[in-house]
Nucleic acid binder design. Structure first.
Lengths: 173, 173
DNA sequence: TATTGTTATACTCTATAACTATA
DNA sequence: TATAGTTATAGAGTATAACAATA
């Protein structure tokens, strides 16, 4: 067959209209960043979704699964698996509430606290790498613009977006 | 039960460390933007992934499925379903290549061309809405910063990110 | 024998809705 | 009866690998 005719590396610019748009770049950068962050987190044995929950628990210890699930916009049945993961790794405890024994109050273990710290350090690293191409002033400006856009979208700010689909689509060849 | 104790609306700031980060906001904005874009596209009967393919076909008509699949980083078996969708809607044609009858050369139909134009108009609308909170100068600056970051990540620029997971997680209550 | 496109299988992830225990 | 949490079921979507036609 004629390689030059059919196997040309890439079929052209494919549409500057999209590849140069804010929406396209935002989506591409967001997905790429999330994927690399998940990879950085992997040595710790958790995924970004677990970190989101760990932070929630740390920020308001002793809450029930239901309350945290609502705050994270995660359905109850998924919360079970999420908390199971963290509990199996000894990062979080389910404590029975003596007043209402239907509820499980979530608490961080010492191990969980330590891991959360390490995870946040990794997040800071990731942030630096991500913003590497920008000067400090540009980085601050970029962050400010991102905040303006996020505010324009409405909705609760603290709710993570990625809980809807797997944090890192399997990539091993 | 004591509502004030357990049902407090949101368990606090939940971790400024993440919610204020570039990575978090990028991911959140990217996902949100993609979701709303998919909704805008729905009346046309296509999803963002179809638009990406339509653009590819338009940019280099007559290529084989395999070539386009590689350019979009989409595995062959998924290309089949993607092209099926577009063909069933009469937007794209599979033409047999007389020289090598294993290949299907992809061509846009007249209807496909018309729909592509409308979709691009919708994309422009979406872009304007997304950037609504920014002044024109800020918008240009923001786009420039996004491009710098995207360049820093390496990899082909035109490859869309969202083809890995469903463009719009089902949301009907 | 190698390659293009297709189909089939198995797997992962999710939400919905029963189910258990407490209230 | 209603609620917190759990489990079971079914559905969507994917990649891997077998397959058919053509080279």
């Amino acid at each position: 067959m004629s390689e030059a005719d059919v196997l040309t590396p890439a079929p052209g610019p494919s549409g500057e209209a999209l590849t140069g748009s804010v929406g396209f770049l935002l989506s591409k950068l967001g997905v790429g960043s999330a994927r690399r962050f998940a990879e950085r987190l992997r040595p710790l044995g958790i995924e970004p979704r677990h970190l989101a929950l760990l932070q929630m628990v740390a920020a308001s210890e002793g809450r029930s699964q239901q309350v945290l699930g609502e705050a994270l916009a995660v359905p109850a049945s998924r919360m079970v698996a999420l908390v199971d993961d963290l509990e199996q790794r000894g990062l979080v405890e389910r404590r029975l509430n003596p007043d209402d024994r239907r509820m499980r109050a979530l608490h961080l273990t010492k191990k969980g606290r330590g891991l959360l710290e390490r995870a946040l350090a990794i997040a800071a690293e990731h942030e630096s790498e991500l913003c590497g191409p920008l000067e400090p002033a540009e980085r601050a400006q970029f962050l400010a613009l991102l905040r303006r856009l996020a505010a324009g979208q409405g909705g609760p700010l603290g709710v993570p977006p990625g809980l809807g689909c797997p944090a890192e689509p399997p990539r091993e060849p």
